[in-house]
Amino acid sequence: MTILNASLTRRRPSLAADVADLDVTPVMNMFIILIPFLVSMAAFTHLAAHHFGLPRDEGAGEASTASELPLTVAVGTAGVVIVKGDVVLAELPAGEDGQDLDLLAAVLTDQPAGRLVLAVDDPVGVDVVVTCLDRCRAAGFDDVGLAAGTGVTLGAGAKP
């Protein structure tokens, strides 16, 4: 009983005396200067690129016959035409919302991977060209050439 009384009456050490008071003010100051500086320099958009290797202009070479031509995707304001050799594989007319490039990817997926030429008409926007490049590469065509188109006209071939 005496022992119990002694333990009850013993003064508990002060909590404040146990906790070391760490002064974080200099660290806070450093953070407050460093973080706005880093945020102002941080890049929140990731830049990527489509690489092209253009040949030197060495005059006109031998013209390929239609059957030797690789798979060609002609992109115009009227729509997209996919041609292999001299056969029109698919015609994708443009809708009110623009080109149906998801359908382009679906058609290209059925074709064996290899070389592909993207022939683009002058008025077509760069964002459409980049999306076409993406669709072609997603369908397995890594070797994509870019060419100037001569005007897409629909109604000559198959529709998917």
Binding site: H46, A48, A49, H51, R56
Partner: peptide, 12 residues
């Protein structure tokens, strides 16, 4: 300048 990169905003 035959080695051309067309810059785009990447997917990530």
């Amino acid at each position: 300048f035959g080695d051309i990169a067309l810059a785009v905003i990447g997917a990530s």
